[in-house]
Computed example of a mutant assay.
Amino acid sequence: MTACRFKRGSPARAVAYVRISTDAACASAPEQRQAIEAWASREGVEIAAWHEDRGEDIGERPGLVAALEALTLAGAGLFAVASEDRASIAGLSGPYRSAAGERGARLVTADGSGMPDGTHRCPICGDPLDLWPRHPRAVCGLCKHEATDEAGRPLEFFNTSFGGGFEARYADTGEPRDSHACVIRGVRCRADEARFGGIVIEAIGGTA
């Protein structure tokens, strides 16, 4: 039986995040909320919780921290922001986007900016992805966190240094694992170092 470290949230439920900076061109909180509400109505998505931050200090974002926690509490599978520039300001294009994935949710933008066009999809779950020509069978960020060994023990993968490298270990004990092989939802996969650092997992076909 495959062990999962988190429960994938419902694709019909979202946590919404609004960030206001001092930039005069920045959309106001009501405008961002209106955009997210319109998107939710079109897509038939329930907004389970709203969280907001104000100001430029990227080190102080209690609203974002609360929004990430709310994903798990609400069982939400979507983390909604108004637009790509709001996602960038929020830091969601980096570690916080990964943090949402670790909680079973994926980032969506109300206006569709910066989002995959749907022509390429995760080979495991079918979620839309940006095509990565060097790794055409790469799995999505959500599925990466469901990787196990052949017996169902959860795995984690890391770079060995800032410049790259590859390391695998068991998530339940921290014990190192000398293998690139893993299994996601019964599909055999391979984890490796990405070209410019980070970890990529690709489906290689066949069932475990």
Results as ranks from 00 to 15, higher is better:
residue 48 A to D: 09
residue 120 H to K: 12
residue 23 D to V: 09
residue 69 E to L: 13
residue 26 C to A: 15
residue 60 E to N: 13
residue 90 A to N: 09
residue 103 R to D: 04
residue 27 A to D: 11
residue 112 G to P: 11
residue 51 H to S: 14
residue 47 I to Q: 07
residue 57 D to E: 12
residue 26 C to T: 06
residue 23 D to M: 14
residue 153 R to L: 11
residue 78 L to P: 06
residue 103 R to M: 08
residue 152 G to C: 09
residue 126 G to P: 15
residue 129 L to V: 01
residue 101 G to P: 02
residue 67 A to W: 04
residue 76 A to L: 03
residue 110 A to K: 10
residue 81 V to P: 08
residue 117 D to Y: 04
residue 150 E to T: 02
residue 60 E to T: 08
residue 80 A to F: 00
residue 152 G to M: 07
residue 82 A to S: 15
residue 68 L to M: 12
residue 148 T to N: 13
residue 89 I to Q: 06
residue 28 S to I: 02
residue 101 G to V: 00
residue 94 G to D: 11
residue 38 A to E: 08
residue 120 H to G: 04
residue 55 G to H: 07
residue 34 Q to E: 14
residue 107 L to N: 06
residue 104 G to P: 07
residue 39 W to I: 06
residue 95 P to M: 11
residue 24 A to I: 08
residue 36 I to D: 03
residue 50 W to D: 12
residue 130 D to E: 14
residue 69 E to Q: 15
residue 108 V to Y: 00
residue 29 A to V: 05
residue 106 R to Y: 01
residue 76 A to K: 05
residue 145 H to T: 10
residue 109 T to E: 04
residue 140 C to K: 07
residue 81 V to R: 07
residue 90 A to C: 15
residue 102 E to D: 07
residue 79 F to P: 11
residue 148 T to Y: 05
residue 65 V to Q: 12
residue 82 A to H: 07
residue 149 D to E: 05
residue 31 E to C: 02
residue 153 R to V: 06
residue 73 L to R: 15
residue 30 P to K: 07
residue 146 E to P: 02
residue 83 S to D: 15
residue 89 I to N: 00
residue 137 R to V: 02
residue 73 L to Q: 15
residue 72 T to F: 01
residue 138 A to W: 00
residue 62 P to K: 09
residue 99 A to K: 08
residue 92 L to M: 15
residue 132 W to V: 15
residue 36 I to R: 06
residue 145 H to M: 14
residue 35 A to K: 10
residue 25 A to V: 04
residue 54 R to N: 06
residue 121 R to G: 06
residue 128 P to S: 11
residue 123 P to I: 07
residue 40 A to T: 03
residue 146 E to W: 10
residue 130 D to G: 12
residue 47 I to K: 09
residue 118 G to E: 10
residue 115 M to H: 01
residue 69 E to P: 05
residue 66 A to E: 11
residue 88 S to L: 15
residue 64 L to I: 05
residue 135 H to D: 14
residue 146 E to R: 14
residue 97 R to E: 11
residue 146 E to A: 10
residue 119 T to D: 06
residue 107 L to Y: 02
residue 108 V to A: 03
residue 21 S to D: 09
residue 83 S to Y: 00
residue 83 S to R: 11
residue 85 D to L: 09
residue 103 R to G: 09
residue 47 I to E: 02
residue 148 T to F: 08
residue 30 P to H: 02
residue 74 A to Q: 15
residue 105 A to Q: 03
residue 57 D to C: 05
residue 100 A to D: 02
residue 117 D to K: 12
residue 78 L to A: 01
residue 93 S to Y: 14
residue 30 P to I: 02
residue 54 R to D: 03
residue 95 P to E: 04
residue 98 S to G: 09
residue 35 A to C: 03
residue 77 G to E: 02
residue 75 G to Q: 03
residue 48 A to Q: 07
residue 41 S to V: 11
residue 102 E to T: 01
residue 20 I to E: 14
residue 34 Q to D: 11
residue 100 A to Q: 03
residue 139 V to M: 05
residue 106 R to K: 08
residue 51 H to K: 09
residue 143 C to F: 02
residue 83 S to W: 00
residue 122 C to F: 09
residue 138 A to K: 13
residue 147 A to E: 06
residue 101 G to Y: 00
residue 101 G to H: 06
residue 79 F to N: 10
residue 123 P to V: 06
